[in-house]
Design a protein around this nucleic acid. Structure first.
Length: 580
RNA sequence: GACGCGUUAGCUCAGCGGGAGAGCACCGGAUUGUCGAUCCGGGAGUCACGGGUUCGAAUCCCGUACGCGUCGCCA
């Protein structure tokens, strides 16, 4: 698998068992150490590692030149072994060096010891990817994709491609527009996801579909977001949420094992409401505690104005009493920035059962409240208690952010805790017109127990939408889809979408549904995020071969660029100069 | 669109109101066991760009560009 007509071994392969063999290696010069006319060392590197080659004479080579070296494997002299590298017990002797290609000095060193500015790395991405870190990341990504594909295949899913040139579907993410040459003035768009196409495949009878699909969204970029990203896209007919979750779990667990060697533990389940209540977020990081607790009963009849609110929650921070005033002030500022009126803190002090709290608010507390606060948060001397009072949603969100601030574990450390978050709300607040805003897409099936609330109290309606979360990152989402026209109409009604409007936007899908739509459900896993976490990278650009910068440019190619005037003419387009 | 941080040699960075610096890389020389080899020598700069303050600006102020992070946005 490694030998070719040009080489017999890889540079990281040779061991003492190979001693005596005449071998040929190909690779790049990682370093060269000359000792005069009679001795020189050349470290030859490929993706597998480095081999030291001993040249009896001087060699005219430079870093990153491409060489083929033929030599005989021998054990290194006593005391000259290099324990730092896997090939360190041997070296290549009696070498003949063939220069396959010279190279300019690289713009930065091809190693993991220093990290260049990302713009420079992206400009010379082909050099950057020669570094062990990028080689490891992209090869791990390849193993993840392979394992996912095998897992889906094994479970009987058919891989089907869907169009990249799709039709505009207003709403949702901003779409990349592709002007049509043959139909002047009209456009395709690049798909935000294969969502509608895969639902059509269900109508066609492909009861288990998957695709490793590229999705494109013209929205602002982030550490965990690129214009184009890769999803493991899945849809199943005659199946419910638990079936989809089981199939996807299989794929991500296999992928994790293929990537890092061990299978993650049980994938937990938690409802959206419980996730918000306990962790203050819909994508909880389960690797650490600091669970939020309800302090409502403690302050039920309180005199403390700040705690007279619909919801009072908090949590204890073990050892947190050591936090300095600056740090606490920063936390209070953060809480206020997130919409809380404040963040109350109490340092637990004292001993022998006597509860002593240090806090600006302490003098307003009753003895019962002091005791209840400490008991409720399970804290003791040396710990810190943080409390927020407001309406439930604000309390949870603010405490969730503070919890992360205090407990967050770097992405590359600790265990991997997958978790399904279920029963998301159907709607997410109201828009300017007073209509509820769909939290997922409008084909998401409401929770069967909440159908009666659709007209009367839509914001209380739960949906059959679910997310997969790993260590505080949203890995993907999915739902049971609506396959019945009457329920679809109810949802459109609730969203304020008229039948005419629905026909205009999704007519072809609704039409297809009249020809025998099976019950179906699906999911999509964000592959870039999963791979980033498995690589221990905070940023998905580190697991993408040719990513864009935060402003959507490619420093290597210079894209985006103006196109030639004749290209615009062919499309019937004219540029409007910027006026700002 | 908003806020924050950054931009000094090919790369990583120090310098923060008065001489443009270091390590690595690069070029030349020395060197028979190095492994980020070592030693000697050398070349290398629009201090991102524009404006302002000042006797004097890499340094202080304003603006712009670019990069990164966060918010908005991502049904």
């Amino acid at each position: 698998m490694t030998s070719t007509a040009m080489r017999t071994h890889l540079c990281g392969q040779l061991r003492p068992t190979d001693v005596g063999e005449r071998v040929r290696l190909c690779g790049w010069v990682a370093s060269r150490r000359e000792h005069g006319e009679h001795l020189a060392f050349v470290d030859l590197r490929d993706h597998s590692g480095v081999t030291q080659c001993v040249v009896d004479g001087s060699v005219d080579v430079r870093n990153e030149w491409v060489l083929r070296i033929e030599g005989t494997v021998r054990t290194r002299p006593a005391d000259k072994e290099n324990a730092e590298i896997p090939t360190g017990a041997v070296e290549l002797a009696d070498c003949t060096v063939e220069v396959l290609n010279r190279a300019d000095p690289p713009p930065f060193a091809v190693d993991d010891r220093t990290d260049s500015d990302e713009a420079v790395r992206l400009k010379y991405r082909y050099v950057d990817m020669r570094r062990p870190r990028m080689q490891a990341n992209l090869r791990l990504r390849a193993r993840v994709l392979g394992a996912m594909r095998r897992a889906m295949d094994r479970q009987g899913f058919a891989e089907i491609e869907t169009p990249l040139l799709w039709t505009p579907t207003p709403e949702g993410a901003r779409e990349f527009v592709v002007p049509s040459r043959l139909h002047r003035g009209e456009c395709y768009v690049l798909p935000q996801s294969p969502q509608i196409a895969k639902q059509l495949l269900m109508v066609s009878g492909f009861d288990r579909y998957f695709q490793i699909a590229r999705c494109l969204r013209d929205e602002d970029l982030r550490a965990d977001r690129q214009f184009e990203f890769t999803q493991l896209d899945v849809e199943m007919s005659f199946a419910s949420d638990v079936d989809v979750q089981a199939a996807v779990t299989e794929a991500v667990v296999d992928a994790t094992e293929a990537a890092v060697g061990d299978r993650p533990g049980t994938v937990g389940r938690i409802t959206w409401h419980e996730a918000m209540d306990r962790y203050g977020t819909d994508k909880p990081d389960l690797r650490f505690g600091l669970d939020l607790v309800d302090l409502g009963p403690v302050f039920a009849g309180t005199e403390v104005k700040a705690f007279q609110a619909g919801c009072v929650k908090g949590f204890g921070v073990p050892g947190g009493a050591a936090l300095g005033r600056n740090r606490l002030d920063a936390l209070v500022d953060r809480a206020k920035a997130l919409g809380a009126k404040g963040l109350a803190w109490f340092k637990v002090a004292g001993a022998d059962g006597a509860v002593v709290l240090e806090s600006p608010l302490d003098k307003f507390l009753s003895d019962d409240e002091r005791a209840g606060l400490v008991a409720g948060t399970g804290t003791g001397p040396g710990d810190l208690i943080l409390v927020v009072a407001d309406e439930w949603r604000t309390v949870c969100t603010v405490l969730g952010a503070v919890r992360l601030e205090l407990g967050r574990i770097p992405v590359g450390e600790g265990e991997r805790r997958f978790c399904w978050v279920t029963e998301f709300p159907m709607f997410d607040g109201l828009d300017e017109a007073g209509n509820p805003v769909a939290a997922h897409h409008p084909f998401t099936m409401p929770h069967p127990d909440d159908l009666a609330l659709m007209a009367s109290d839509p914001l209380q309606v739960r949906s059959q939408a679910y997310d997969l979360v790993l260590n505080g990152w949203e890995l993907g989402s999915g739902s049971v889809r609506i396959h019945r026209e009457d329920i679809q109409r109810q949802v459109f009604d609730a969203l304020g979408i008229t039948p005419e409007e629905a026909e205009l936007r999704f007519g072809f899908l609704l039409g297809a549904f009249r020809y025998g739509a099976p019950p179906h459900a699906g999911f999509a896993v964000g592959v870039d995020r999963l791979v980033a976490i498995l690589c221990g990278e905070e940023n998905i650009r580190e697991v993408i071969a040719f990513p864009k910068t935060q402003s959507g440019t490619d420093p290597m190619t210079g894209a985006p660029k103006a196109v030639a005037p004749h290209a615009l003419r062919d499309l019937g387009l004219q540029l409007i100069p910027r006026t700002d």
